[in-house]
Structures are given as C-alpha cells and as structure tokens.
C-alpha cells in the first residue's frame, strides 16, 4: 500500500513539472487552429526590411507602361487604317514640329505664333497639338510663320465627344483659360472629371485627341446644359508644338 501511494504521488509530481510543456502544446494547438497567427505575423515583422520596395514597383510599372505603349501604337495604326477605309481622313497627313515664337494666352485675343509657315506646308485650319492634347487650329499663315487660334479664343468653335456618356458637344472659347462646352440636349449626364476628346466623326481635326477634362457642369443653363472644361495641354508652358499638316 505504501509503495502504491508513493508511486501515485511521484506520478502526480512529474505531471506537475510538465505543466509548462502542456502550455506550449496548447499554444501550438492555438497556432494550428488559427492558421499560423503569431508565427506569420512575427515573420512579417522580421522580414519587413527585405520586402519588395519601390524599386521593384517601378520596374513592374515600367513594364506595364511598355506594354501599354505597344498596345496604344498598335491600336492607333489599326484606328488610322479603319478611318482611312471609312474615308474620314486623308492618308497623307504628317506632323511638323514648330517652335512657339509669340504667346498671347490672355488679352483681347488668345493666340500663338509658331515658327513654321506655308513654306513648310502648313495650311489654314491645320490642327496644332502639344503634349497633353489639342491646343487650337491654324488661323492664318505667312511664308515662315503661322498664327494659331487657341481653343480658349472667343471665336473658337470645335465639335467634341464625351466617351463616357457617348454624347457630342460644342467646345466654345469665351476668352477665359477654360472654354465652355455646350451640349445639344438638356441633362446629358456629364459629370466633373469626364474626359473630353475630339469628335470621332470630325474631318477637321484628328479624332479622339484629348482636349481636356470637365471641371463643372451647369444643368440649369438655357437652352441646354453647359460645362466648363479644363484644357489638358498647358499653353503657358509649351515651347514646341506639332502641326498636323493636311489633316483636313
């Protein structure tokens, strides 16, 4: 009897000394049940300095840009071919780079003078582009210069297209840095932030060129909705422009 009692007491004591291990076991069971909580978090904390940083992000972004550019140029070629088939555009248009030699974006007239004229094949009505989008159209030419009427000029009128709501509008210069977009109907569903491009049906300017972004919409305007457009090409900062010769 004394032997059996002492054995049980020893067993209990050895079990009592094992309780820390039991706690560890319970913790491990908890880790198992929580799908690695604690371990994964500790690993994340320790390896944070070695995570893929901005350099790798830029690498991925540049690869994406390259892919987008290739796709864009392919679509442009395709688009031009289709427009040519539809006879919306003559095939012999070409770009001519020209320096801005006089700039008058404010005052009575909003105009630019560029350093290429009729000797370089520039003609009245040719669209003038800058990084960012369309700037305006050639209003008059001399042998070596051309005067460009900006989209902001009071006499400028241009048919434009809103791809999101699939509506046409008339972009009218009013003498301020932001021209007015007049819709043909009431409440067309335009919103600030909508992109404005040149009309795909236009034979005066190349189609689908970015013009600007709608800044505010006035649905109470009479006779139809009007919107103020922020142009995307920075007139004040542009030193060189591209004239699309023979685009008409």
């Amino acid at each position: 009897m004394p032997f059996g009692r002492s054995f049980r007491v020893t067993q209990l004591r050895s079990l009592g000394s094992l309780w820390p291990w039991l706690l560890v076991l319970l913790a491990l069971v908890g880790v198992r049940l929580s799908k690695g909580a604690g371990f994964a978090d500790a690993y994340a904390l320790m390896t944070r300095p070695f995570w893929p940083g901005s350099a790798q992000g830029e690498w991925v972004r540049s690869a994406q840009q390259l892919g987008d550019q290739a796709r864009l140029s392919q679509l442009e070629v395709d688009n031009q071919r289709l427009r040519h088939l539809l006879q919306l555009e003559r095939g012999d248009s070409a770009f001519e780079g020209a320096a801005v030699i006089s700039r008058e974006p404010g005052g009575w007239w909003q105009q630019l003078l560029i350093g290429k004229g009729s000797l370089n094949g520039v003609g009245v009505g040719d669209p003038v582009l800058a990084p960012g989008g369309l700037l305006g159209r050639v209003a008059s030419v001399t042998p070596t210069t051309s005067k460009v009427q900006l989209l902001t000029d009071g006499g400028s009128r241009l048919g434009v297209w809103l791809p999101r709501i699939r509506r046409h509008g008339l972009l009218t210069g009013v003498g301020t840095p932001r021209p007015l977009l007049r819709f043909l109907e009431k409440d067309p569903g335009a919103r600030p932030g909508d992109v404005v491009v040149t009309s795909p049906a236009s034979t005066l300017v190349p189609a689908n060129l970015t013009v600007g972004v709608i800044q505010s919409v006035d649905d109470r305007a009479v006779p139809a909705t009007e919107a103020v457009v922020q142009l995307s090409a920075p007139v004040q900062a542009v030193d060189w422009v591209q004239v699309r010769k023979g685009a008409r």
Partner: peptide
C-alpha cells in the same frame, strides 16, 4: 460680333 462678356 456677340462675343463680349466679362473676360473682355
């Protein structure tokens, strides 16, 4: 010409 307004 019908183009006068506040900007002018």
């Amino acid at each position: 010409l019908g183009e006068a307004g506040r900007p002018q």
